[in-house]
Each structure stands twice: as C-alpha cells, then as structure tokens.
C-alpha cells in the first residue's frame, strides 16, 4: 500500500518533469562552472539548467555568487580583467565560451537588465533604437519606429511615454527607467533576458509593475533573475536556485523550494534565519 503510493508519487513527479521537458526545452546549461577573481574562487562547480519560457530565480545571501553566475551567462564577466571562468556554459547546446563564439552576438541573444536603471542620457526613442541600429535589425526608419513602439508596448511603458519619445530617458521616474531598460533589452529580440536585482532600487508600486511585466515576458523569453526578495522569487519564478558561499545548494520548482526544501540551508535562508 505504502509502496504503491510512493511509486505513484514518483510516477507522477516523473510525468510532471517529462511534461515540463516537452513544453520547456533546455535553453541554457551550466556544467561545473567555476569562477575565479584573481586568486579567489567565487563559484564552485555549479550545474544549473535554465529552461525555455520560464523564469528562473537565483536567491541567496549577499556575496554567494548568484550575480557572478548570472554575469557568466552572457559573458559580462569578460569585462573584468582578473575574472576567469572554468567549466562549460551552453546556449542551445553551443558552448558560449568557445573561441568561435562572438561575444557581441551572444549578448544580443542574451540581454541584460541591471540593478540600477541605466538608461543612456539620450531620448527615449534613441535608447531603444540603439540596439536594433547596431545589430542592423531595422531596414528603414519606419521599421525602427515600429520596433521602438512594440518594445515599449511589451515593456508596458508605451502609454506612459508615447507623447514624449524624444525627451531624455533619464527624466523618467525610477520604475519607468527600469522598464525602459527592459524595453531596450527586448528591442534587440533576445532569447534570454538576465536581470540582476532589477527592483532593488524601486519603490513597491514600481516593483509590482516590473514583476507583472516579468510574468508576461516569460511567454516569449527565457528569464533569469537575481533577487534578494523571497516574495519576489516566489511571485515571479517557476524555478528557484539557492546559492550559498559560491555553491549551488539546491535547485527546484519554486513552490517546492518555498514549501518543502530538501536542504536545511535553503529552509533557514527562506525563513530568514540567516542571510
């Protein structure tokens, strides 16, 4: 009786993961990722899968390596001289650290939104049009305007700024600036969007708007988000990965991670006992 229930549960779980694999094929995969800043090792053998059209939340106390891992996914760490990455990270089964991979191409496919809104000190239109322009995504000015409008619409910002597209992006409020940055990332049609604590500089109302946006964006994009807010991770993500001291502690479906984590450290962190 007992045995049967267990097998049933196992079967059910297996079915669920099979189903998930079908609707959410593998997008990015990290295998034994180690990162060193000079002599200091920041990440230890991280294995993590990111699946298509899902939101993956990376949580953990400050300095645990979650941002470092995120920045490995589009090789933003290349800009740091002393940073060295070992292991393998793939995007659609291609090694992104392969010599043949052009980092500019990679970053066009894996966009990034930063902690502090950082619009260019140019007009709203130019902010969004810049990416498509340098990647040659628009054949005409009309095309470009089209991209600007749709990107702003997707970022839920169009209605608020449609009358002042030529005013500077830096004149918007913090939350609007962050959504402008998301629109800017969307404009180059990335496949994956990385977000490094995108709401940490925003007030609760702006945060709610960005979270709503993230939820909508997962229909078309794969999202990896670093967050310090447990509630945010619970609200927006389908899967959650817990980092601690450079080690991936645990990874799983968000509801399971928040209700019944396997690792005691995860439980302690989520319930606020450390971190």
């Amino acid at each position: 009786m007992n045995m049967r229930t267990e097998t049933q549960i196992e079967e059910a779980l297996k079915d669920k993961s099979m189903a998930q694999n079908e609707t959410h094929p593998l997008k990015m995969r990290g295998e034994k990722v180690c990162v060193y800043y000079g002599e200091k090792q920041a990440l230890y053998d991280v294995d993590l899968d990111v699946r298509e059209n899902q939101v993956m939340a990376l949580i953990g106390p400050s300095g645990c390596g979650k941002s470092t891992f995120l920045r490995c996914l589009n090789r933003m760490n290349d800009t740091i001289d002393i940073c060295r990455v070992a292991g393998k990270i793939t995007l659609d089964n291609e090694d992104i650290y392969d010599k043949a991979v052009d980092v500019v191409e990679l970053r066009a496919r894996v966009g990034m939104v930063f902690q502090k809104p950082n619009p260019f000190p140019k007009s709203i239109r130019e902010n969004i049009a810049y990416g498509p322009k340098i990647h040659g995504l628009a054949r005409s000015k009309a095309d470009l305007d089209e991209i600007v409008v749709t990107s702003l619409q997707k970022a839920g910002l169009f209605e608020e700024v449609k009358d002042r597209l030529d005013e500077p992006g830096t004149g918007l409020s913090g939350g609007q600036q962050q959504r402008l940055c998301i629109a800017r990332a969307i404009a180059v049609s990335p496949e994956v969007i990385l977000m490094d604590e995108p709401c940490s500089a925003l007030d609760p109302i702006a945060t709610a708007k960005v979270e709503e946006l993230i939820d909508e964006l997962k229909e078309n994009y794969t999202i990896v988000i670093v967050t310090h807010s447990m509630q945010q991770a619970a609200r927006v993500s389908q899967r959650t990965a817990m980092f601690h001291l450079g080690v991936l502690v645990e990874e799983g479906p968000t509801d399971k991670m928040f209700t019944n984590p396997d690792d005691k450290r995860t439980q302690d962190y989520i319930t606020g006992r450390f971190g």
Partner: peptide, 27 residues
C-alpha cells in the same frame, strides 16, 4: 562616465568600441 553606461551598452550587445565611441566618448 559611470560604468553603468558602459554596462548598459555592452548588455544589449554593443562591442567595446561601440560602447566607447557611441556612449562614453560623447559624455
């Protein structure tokens, strides 16, 4: 020029030179 401007440009796939010449240098 704040590093966030460079990161913003690199983050949407500008090359280093594009980031410098389109964003950093004008500022």
């Amino acid at each position: 020029v704040p590093p966030s401007i460079r990161e913003g440009a690199l983050g949407i796939g500008a090359s280093k030179m594009q980031a410098v010449f389109h964003h950093v240098l004008p500022l």
